[in-house]
């Protein structure tokens, strides 16, 4: 089984040459042009090694590497190698001595050095994920997954399935509050828990994405202005990671909506609601109730549709 490598590079030319060199050496290679693309591919690709351009626009190399590291913990973390034109001193300062990378290679890369680093990293800690997935038939086709899902649904009693999504019961709704301000975070948590919702908190976009990777939320309330990965970028990543159909409802909180630029206002369309922090808790709670109710209705509809599909596919079950 060839070593699986994901090349993350926004410059197509550099990506092409690197991929050609690696394929010539017998590696299986996929490429990603952005951090978001890389995260999406790394989650499902069972890669042994990720070669990451450190300076990529949008979600940068460091944030991308942290997310890949977090999101692949359960399935097998790939070795992460940074490629950077920056000096090692600069890189060390940026990562604050707590690097998520297993190695750093200077750009422009030298084939012998890069290949030796890949070999060293891979041999030191091979990723068992792909082999495990292949052995355990986890890598099934999309239709295979759909069949399993349908089979599970038809074996579920009507009582069980209707109990899952109760539109009016807030206890079944789970909310993630993302705000870098501890005070606001606690305030929202208390207020929402008092309403009967299950509430988790995250202090930044990265933390939020990690939690969304581990748990299912009906609603995410995001502070728009956050350091590192802002609310808009976080919302975009949620779309990519969870998928449009399964994504939670998204509410943006901003302290000054009138100050948002035209571009930001346009970008805010990824959110289901935008609320000014100055409007008070009642406005937030009203939007939360509305969003949760919408999400529940949507989920109930999907369960019914998939059950109908399942009974058509497997009438004897």
């Amino acid at each position: 089984m060839p070593t699986r490598i994901l090349v993350v590079e926004d410059d197509v030319m550099q990506s092409d040459v690197l991929a050609a060199m690696l394929e010539e050496q017998g590696f299986y290679v996929e490429t990603a042009e952005s951090g978001m693309d890389a995260i999406k591919k790394a989650r499902v690709g069972w890669f042994d090694v990720v070669l990451m351009d450190y300076h990529i626009p949008g979600v940068d190399g460091l944030a991308t590497a942290r997310l890949i590291s977090d999101l692949t913990k359960a399935t097998g973390r790939p070795r992460l190698i940074a490629l950077s034109t920056a000096t090692e001193a600069l890189l060390a300062r940026e990562v604050g001595g707590k690097t998520v990378f297993d190695a750093v290679e200077k750009k422009p890369w030298a084939p012998q050095s890069l290949l030796a680093t890949i070999k060293r990293c891979h041999e030191a800690a091979p990723n068992p994920g792909y082999r495990w997935a292949a052995d355990n038939e986890v890598l099934v086709s999309r239709s295979g997954r759909r069949r399993r899902m349908a089979e599970q649904l038809v074996t579920m009693s009507d009582t069980e399935s209707s109990a899952i999504h109760d539109e009016t019961d807030p206890e079944t709704a789970h909310i993630l509050v993302v705000d870098d301000d501890d005070l606001l975070q606690s305030f929202f948590k208390l207020a929402l828990e008092a309403e009967g919702y299950g509430v988790d908190t995250a202090t930044n976009g990265l933390d939020a994405l990690r939690k969304i990777g581990l748990s299912r939320y009906d609603l995410v309330i995001l502070d728009y202005q956050m350091p590192e990965i802002d609310g808009f970028a976080t919302a975009g990543l949620i779309f990519e990671l969870v998928g449009k159909r399964d994504r939670p409802q998204l509410i943006a909180l901003t302290s000054a909506p009138e100050r948002l630029s035209d571009q930001e206002k346009g970008s805010l369309s990824v959110f289901d609601a935008i609320i000014s922090k100055s409007h008070g808790m009642e406005s937030v709670l009203a939007a939360v109730r509305q969003s949760i109710a919408y999400k529940k209705r949507q989920s109930n509809l999907e369960v019914v549709n998939v059950k109908q599909l399942a009974s058509q596919l497997y009438p004897s079950a």
């Binding site: 410059d11 550099q14 351009d53 300076h55 490629l83 034109t85 750009k107 422009p108 890369w109």
Partner: peptide
């Protein structure tokens, strides 16, 4: 310059 630094060196 960043893009060129990587690609030219290659």
């Amino acid at each position: 310059a960043h893009v060129l630094a990587g690609s030219a060196g290659m």
